[in-house]
Each structure stands twice: as structure tokens, then as C-alpha cells.
Amino acid sequence: MVELDSHDTTAGEHRSWRSAARVRAGTARGTGGAARARLRLGAAVSVLALLVLAALLVPTLSSAPGTVDYQAVRLSPGPEHPFGTDTSGRDLFVRSLAGLRVSLLVAVVSTAVSALLGTAVGAVSGSLGGWADRLLMRVVDAVNAVPHLLLGIVIVALYQGTVLAVVLSIGLTHWATVARVVRSEVLGLRNRPYVDAAVSSGAGRWWVLRKHLLPAIVPQAALSAVLLVPHAVFHETALSFLGLGLPPHLASIGNILSDGREGVLLGAWWIVAFPAALLVATTLSVSGIAAVWRDRVVPTRRSELAL
């Protein structure tokens, strides 16, 4: 049974309303949960901020990440090179952060592509209904039916070796989940009394979509987009690791891991361990932020529906 904290009247109506909504939504969270969520959010935000800042600043401020030095091949981590060096003698600290920058950029741009495409398809599908809805949902099913990585490989193969190809291959395979979320939101909204009132006063489909439906689904669409970011980072990494992704000279986490394979066989574990740790830390912090956000958005929506 969920334990509800007893709020006195000065404790702020806002919070008690929120935990009440959570109880109704069936999420078992009391006060301890709220404090833990705040802690989790704080930790995730600071880790992500640190990583993004490092990825932006370190490669810019230090020597070029691509500097090859055959005098310093596979040096283990030490004061000179905190993450060691790779099989070409490049400093892994700088190179990993440069790689993180590229991977994050590709992930964010391709997530934006997915989010825009998914929102457009979902909103049109949900608000038109009828045969247009059925057709679009079958397209969504088809995209979902093919493994994302496989479809991504096909798209990359068509335009090999460009950053755009990687962005598109991730963007064009991940919009379907966003489209589903947006569509179901629109279906729940389009027969609300305030939409009826707008229709009765002469508003057209486009007006209703623009003024009532889209503003209402922005939080949900944005949330499902943020949940895609870690996924997109992994996809970029996987494509580059397979040698299909970003051009080899461009440092990305996937390229570094791919290069690091031979090093690992020679005992240089750091070539894989540190970039992989950066990747895991980044994705965990993004999904941590998204999880806290979801807990906030979803009960709000439910309490709004209960009106």
C-alpha cells in the first residue's frame, strides 16, 4: 500500500497534489521517493553537464585529437595521458571527449529528425482518422517490424561515409515510436469538449491541430524524443563500430571502440574501457533525466484527464 505523507496546509498544495496524482496513477512513491527523484535528477544533470562541457572544451583547448605519435603507442593511463593512448599513439582522453562530442551531436540531430517526423505523422494520423490513419499506422508497423540496425545499415549503405547518412539512418528508423505516442495522445484529445466547441464555432482541422492538439502533446512528444537520445547514441556507436558509420578519421565513440579492438587483444584494456565508460555515463544520465521528467509529466496528464 502506498504511504501518503501528511501535509500540513503550509507545505504547499502543489506537492501534495502531485503525490496524490501519483497514487492515482499507481506509482508507488511517497516523500522518500520525491527526495530520491530530486537527488537522481541532480546527479544526472550534473554528470551530463560535466560531460557535455568536457566534450565541448577539452578537444578545443588541447592539441588536435588526431595527432599521431608512434613514440607513444598504447601507453597505459598515467599523469601524461589520463586515459592512456591508442594504437596510433593518440591521447585517448582528448580523443574520447572529441568522440563523445561527435556522437552526441549525431544523436541529438537524428533525435530531432525523429521527433519532428514522428510528431507530424502521429498528429496527422490521429486527427484525420479513417483510411489515412490506417495507412500511416501500417507504415509505422512496417518500420517497427524491421530491426532498426538493419534498416539503418541499408540507409547508410546508400549514402556511405557521410555524417548526414548516419543522421538519417538513425532519424528515419526511430520516428515510429514518437508517432505512436503522439497519435494516442491526439486520439485522447480530439473529442474533448473544448475541441467540440471550436468545431462548432467554425474552426477547421488545421486550426484545431495547431491551437489545441499540438500544444497539448508537446510535453509527451518532447519526452519520447529525449528517451530516444541514449538509443541514438548507441546506434551511432554500433554503426561506426561495424565500419559503416562516420568516416574513420572523425573521432566518434564507435570509431574509437572499433579501432581499439586490436589494442585490447594486446592487453590495452584502456582503449575500450574509458570511451565505453563515457558512453555509458552519458546515456545513463540522459535516461535518468528523462525518467524523472516522465514521472512528472505523466501524472499531470492523468490528473488533467480526470477533470
Binding site: R192, P193, Y194, D196, A197, K211, H212, A216, L307
Partner: peptide
Amino acid sequence: FQQPRPAVD
């Protein structure tokens, strides 16, 4: 409508 609250955005 009867209920004004759900009838406004």
C-alpha cells in the same frame, strides 16, 4: 455545454 471547465482549453 453544462460543464464549463472541460469546455475550454
